[in-house]
Design a protein around this nucleic acid. Sequence first.
DNA 1: CGAACAGCGGCAACCAGTTGCCACAGGTTG
DNA 2: CAACCTGTGGCAACTGGTTGCCGCTGTTCG
Lengths: 337, 337
Amino acid sequence: MDPTQGPRRPSSPTIYDVATACGVAPSTVSRAFSRPGRVNAETAERIRKVAAELGYRTNPLARGLPTGKTSLLALIVADVTNPFFFQIIRGAERVARKAGYTMLVADVEESMETEREALDRVIPLVEGIVLATSRLSDSSIRVAAKQRPTVVLNRVMTDIPSVVTDNERGMRRAVEHLVELGHTTITYVAGPEASWVDGMRWRSLREATYQLELRARRIGPFQPTVAGGLAAARAFGATPTSAVIVYNDLMAIGMMRGLTEMGTRIPEDVSVVGFDNIFGSDFCTPPLTTVAAPLHNLGAFAIKTLLGQLASDAPRALRPALLPSQLIVRGSTGRKR
Amino acid sequence: MDPTQGPRRPSSPTIYDVATACGVAPSTVSRAFSRPGRVNAETAERIRKVAAELGYRTNPLARGLPTGKTSLLALIVADVTNPFFFQIIRGAERVARKAGYTMLVADVEESMETEREALDRVIPLVEGIVLATSRLSDSSIRVAAKQRPTVVLNRVMTDIPSVVTDNERGMRRAVEHLVELGHTTITYVAGPEASWVDGMRWRSLREATYQLELRARRIGPFQPTVAGGLAAARAFGATPTSAVIVYNDLMAIGMMRGLTEMGTRIPEDVSVVGFDNIFGSDFCTPPLTTVAAPLHNLGAFAIKTLLGQLASDAPRALRPALLPSQLIVRGSTGRKR
DNA sequence: CGAACAGCGGCAACCAGTTGCCACAGGTTG
DNA sequence: CAACCTGTGGCAACTGGTTGCCGCTGTTCG
């Protein structure tokens, strides 16, 4: 039609286009979509029909600017390459999508610095934030939470909604399992010192062993990776016990490999228990006995909690949500010789 | 100050606040940030200082509305829970971040439907799109590419920039490896029929075996999962060969497990080669010989290509980028008996 | 000495929605 | 019959930036 313009990008139609096509005001078009009931049913129907014909889609930026409603949520994970997070991401994304939200996943590569930057970048964009295994200090988290509704995953804070696995019961079940197999001394192989979860697991182990009249010992800290597990195997080799409980599966897998290379047989010489039941814990050798975290549900529940906050902006119950874990017995644990 | 309002959310300062604090016009503040050189150096310096004091941060929504520059890129992956994608995501995110972009990862759970929805939701928000292992038809992809610069990963299209692993050479190396071990017949265990990569790998195998005067056979298709590999093991058991090359590592791991359960020894009875070198392929039993894809680089390169398109909006060379793969020999392959 | 020009800042329109307030029509009530 | 209320649509201001264009000032050059 207009020969002076080349084949310009077909910029999508706006409410103004729909409005003129319908012979109504733009505000009416806006209300037809966002304010059901405010517009006469027939008019609304007509507008919706014309909009569909024109291929109108409301521009999320334009909507978000005055209202702050961007339909975006942020999920900040410590390490996307850690299988621990896969199911969490999926669970979160599923719930978010169902509620009409899009999720923005940011990987912070286990770095506090990067996490802070990611947060800065993301805050003005999103309506709410889930921090999954944050490396930030409590006070930094509070600063973020002041700007946007926030939920922390895998960490308990008194003034911010938290979602965690029930480490205490999980640990208790793991210890009971080892007792049944005749073990009397348990070594805890610790993860990173700064980890809230690590502290929690060690405390739970102490408590469980105390009640069941066992001995508990701790070595570490080690990196929460396969490599960290290898290092742990070497450290453990000096003063072995018949049973170990490892901070997480990644480390447990590395540790089993290290032990096997040193000639230690699993479970004949040493029983190994991991945590989380990540991808791979079922096909390593031997398959790992582990305290399964409800990974999918963890992600899903965190988003649900966040959506709840968004809906009724009064933050509700601050008691941390404890999601149940489950002991999965596989081949890495056996009767004490 | 204003007792009628409660402790309202401290909405962040705008260019207007900075402008009045500096005694200049808002447009000058805007230019001080986005148009270096356009504003007198001293003035710009003063503005930047005041802005920093006030804690001013430019609102990405407001910037994006008139300009379309949202600093967001979309990465759409077929399945976030597939370890294949972890390193891809990280590589992509790293490059994006370094260029000042934030990445929006969308999981489509291997569903065409979901992928289309994700695309719809994300298009108006982002400046460019990477489709990693898309389940969409070529024409659907073209529709998206018409709206935003698009790069496809793990798939070749003639009219859209593509980034793929060099499957041909990788397959060639795998076959050569098996020849050296004395194998003469190779079974290819196929992945999903709709997969572009599967077709490519089978074709490459045919070619390599033809040139090296071997026999090739194909079974499948199977689901590209551990479960699919288990199914493949049963199917393969009926008419075994001494060597198999499996569509990907996930399936190869499942297949090894299936074979082991059936009493087949690896690599004594059957040599197994996988593809991709995903997390876990080194600690399954036996460790898997595999054609490693440059996962991290795949993601990084896709984003680099996309950024290139964004910079010079003329789409450049459309020859697909072939990233080299590398054979990693581990314990799952051995000399033919 | 006047014209031309470069440097720099401001004005105002624009992006695409949302929403408070008003106006008008028609029905209801005292 | 007047006063009032309700349902529905429009006007215009607002979100927070960006940018084309204009005008002022001071310098340079013919």
